[in-house]
Amino acid sequence: MISFIILMSIVICFSAVLALALNFQWGSGGMVNFGLAGFYALGAYACALLMLKGGFNTFFATLGAMAIVAVACGLVAIVTLRVTEEDYFAIVTLGVGEMLRLVALNEDWLTKGALGLSGIERPFNDWVAPTSYSYVMLGFCALMVAATVWFLNKLARSPFGRVVRAVREDDVVAATLGKHVLWARIRIFAIGGALIGLAGSLHAFYYQYIDPTQFSNIVIAYAFMAVIAGGRGAYLGTILGASIVMVLLEGSRFAKDLIPSLSSDQLAAIRIIIIGVGLIALLIYRPQGFLREYRLQANLSGSKQQSP
């Protein structure tokens, strides 16, 4: 049991990194990413291929995957050049994500198509005995989550963090204040992309086998649920959100032993319905999530008089 909990914790960790990436792009930057599953696949495949075909070690493969997804995301952000409405951008991300998954499925020569890539190396594999490897993997993944949260919080408190929020709240005002909005958007999406690349790499390390079916659109529902539950812009909350989603998903598997009358077919559908309903309910009743976004604490007593 305990080793199963450890393995689930690893899954929570890399789901959390993915959700954190989305939280930065969408929660902080206001750039919704409906192609998350495709970019996630890109990260996992880039990492795996850099090792299997490029001969890189796990460290450089991860860095490479982060760079590749960052560039891909940055390029996508360019379409907001003239149209800044979120709706158009969301549709574009959906399409690009779909396209990336099709490439993974169809380019046999590179990705082995539906067969998937196996034999993916893991970091620190030769340091420890296979039986205790899961502890190392958990430690590594947890470290990555901590580093991501630290980095994003640092970023939120930096001048760029303020630009990010300004672009989200009102890009016209941001532009009027002399901020280069397009460049900021590209950077927001690319930074999120790098984190998606990291999450994808961790996914590849954990499963050691990736194929296109692992990156279905359900991934998007889970990630959005994690971000909304945790609170948009609240990075620590995202970890909580990712844990809730995972416990809900895996818990429902154990729950089946209790309610045998439901067919698994229906159970799978119900699980997604619960996620979807939960997502909408949280949006309506608890839009701020469980934890709050970092806000610059202004000296309220001084500024109060200025407001009308």
Binding site: L7, Y207, Y209, T213, Q214
Partner: peptide, 21 residues
């Protein structure tokens, strides 16, 4: 007896559960 949902990652998680739990 568990549902693999015809999916790679679900099956991998199941396999972990079978072996470890």
């Amino acid at each position: 007896i568990e549902d693999s949902e015809s999916s790679a990652s679900v099956a991998a998680n199941l396999t972990q559960k079978f072996i470890n739990v």
